[in-house]
Design a protein around this nucleic acid. Structure first.
Lengths: 337, 337
DNA sequence: TTGTAGGCGTTATCAA
DNA sequence: TTGATAACGCCTACAA
């Protein structure tokens, strides 16, 4: 069979250019090719260019599947987030991918749509790839997920939250404290009748923690605080809708996140409620628009990049096991509250 | 070695529960276990429960790496997008993942940050996983990428755009027409001095196509149209900044996308420019806030879900090769323009 | 219906 | 430095 014929068969998916083909073509053994691919300097200057030329000519693409099997462990990291549509997580995944790919690791994403059962299914599938690590969001998992993960040797990182009993590593910050910080900000400004507007709190346990911290701190300060909750996902429409549910005498609202807060801003504008004089508004996330909207939004900046970097470090330097890393967050006061 | 000992070794990563272990434990052969896993009904009612019990007890997780090698083809689909931070693509990836995982396919994402060289690297890595398919964004690729993909038997889908010469399948819509549609809308409303505000047009070739279509249609109608371009990524800040660059007599602006348009809305509000009386604004994307902002935003709805579904179909029904599928888009007129 | 044998394309271990 | 050889864990014939 000529090389042209082989190329045709390859294109039709009947065959595939293997390391052995490269070896034959350059007159060396497959092991030398393998060695060249992993440590080019370990092979003599005589055959290196021959191998390189053969790879180029034959269009050889290494097969990581076979490599992973032989080496007992693949170069993929499985990242499981609640939703990619959520800016926090798409940003985290984005930053994580950047950090990992720099080190030759690839990212396999899954999203749970906030379902713990779906998460378990994804974890099971992820484990099937013998990944270099598994990254999960939060600390709320089914028993099945937990058992699966406790039983495996695969490094596990839980992110965006700090569990009391981490499965392995954890990177995040305490959301209750975020809620408390926002509450103290409100108290300092003299807002004594306030509300928390929460979207999908049953599923978004991090937002629920923020709500809890906020409510507690407020009540401990003797303020009147009500918790509004909408089962719909966070959106500007949800924010606008929740504004209907609060009493006329509420002076300030803390929102699930900036999207919800933006909805409140718009709705307030429609109703001619002056912000912050008539109603103060705060969000969470410091998304792109928070600094530019009218008025600019008081919010909490959570440092998604720092989380991603720390997670990547956890995975790359495996010496540091079973540790929890706390990342920063900062309250950014702006004109809206 | 007792089972407890084995479990310990597994946890330490020294060993792994294989199909053979399950087979031994349930007193059948490995092929029966394999068969059970793929076609549970093909195995006798006698041994099926025994196998199931052993899998459960041993915590067996199938190894897709080995499976993929033996079956010559893995169950991953590699999806490469410019950026996950961009709502269009995170939504597409999200919808795609949903459609694919329903059919037992997993999603491997990569993002290029709008670099064609990075895309080539990602394609090379993707190919190494012997994926079931590769999904790319747009039709602008390096020669290397194109050659790599032309040479392989792996199905390729280009999405979000309709190339003149697709590599394999393509799913999307013509962005020039989107720009023209927006221009016609402006013309119908009597806006005769207009501008296009483009973010990162050198890299975002789809936005550039929209800009081109818009400008051409406008000029063909004898209107005055200027093209503003900012090298920064699309953001509200970029939108606000670009508003500075247009002349005082411009009556309407079409934006790269809704985020940029939102920035314009905010900036206009700061300057007390009434919208749409003093300045009409239109976006692209129909993002969450477009219907709720003040005033609501005239925009183009691109149907990311339809794209994702069609791409998934292309991958799942391989009979339909080398076809281009055109997806819908619609101009949504709202108060801003 | 169940079991046996061979092979998928690499990597790791040794010996030369 | 290089090359032969044995895994890696599973799937797919084929045989029983």
């Amino acid at each position: 069979m000529t090389e042209v014929e082989k190329a045709q068969r390859v294109r039709r998916g009947m065959e595939r250019v293997t390391m052995m083909d490269v070896a034959r073509h350059s007159g060396v053994s497959a092991s030398s090719v393998s060695l060249f691919l992993r440590k080019p300097e370990a092979v003599s200057a005589k055959i290196a260019p021959r191998i390189a030329a053969a790879i180029e000519k034959l269009g050889y693409v290494p097969n990581y599947v076979a490599g992973g099997l032989a080496a007992a462990g693949s170069r993929v990291v499985s990242v499981i987030v609640p939703s990619l549509r959520n800016a926090f997580f798409s940003e985290t995944v984005s930053a994580l991918e950047k950090n990992l790919s720099r080190n030759g690791l690839q990212t396999l994403v899954g999203h749970t749509e906030y379902s713990l059962e779906q998460e378990e299914r994804l974890v099971r599938a992820a484990l099937s790839w013998a990944p270099a690590a598994i990254v999960l969001t939060g600390n709320d998992h089914t028993d099945g997920t937990r058992n699966l993960l406790l039983k495996t040797a695969t490094p596990v990182v839980e992110m965006w939250e700090l569990p009391d009993a981490p499965i392995d590593c954890a990177v995040g910050f305490p959301h209750e404290e975020v809620g408390r910080a926002m509450a103290r900000h409100f108290i300092a400004r003299g807002y004594e009748n306030v509300a928390f507007l929460g979207a999908r709190l049953d599923e978004d346990t991090r937002a629920a923690s923020r709500a809890r911290g906020f409510m507690e701190e407020m009540r401990e300060a003797g303020c009147k605080a009500q918790l509004i909750s909408d089962p719909a996902p966070a959106s500007t429409a949800t924010g606008a809708r929740m504004l209907d549910a609060i009493g006329n005498d509420v002076r300030a609202v803390a929102c699930s996140n900036d999207i919800v807060a933006l909805g409140v801003l718009f709705e307030a504008q429609k109703r001619d409620l002056t912000i912050p004089d008539r109603l103060a508004v705060a969000g969470f996330g410091d998304l792109d628009f928070a600094a530019n909207c009218v008025p600019p939004l008081t919010t909490i900046r959570p440092q998604a990049e720092q989380i991603a970097e720390t997670v990547a470090n956890c995975i790359l330097n495996r010496e540091s096991e079973q540790r929890s890393y706390r990342t920063d967050f900062a309250l950014i006061p702006r004109r809206s509250a």
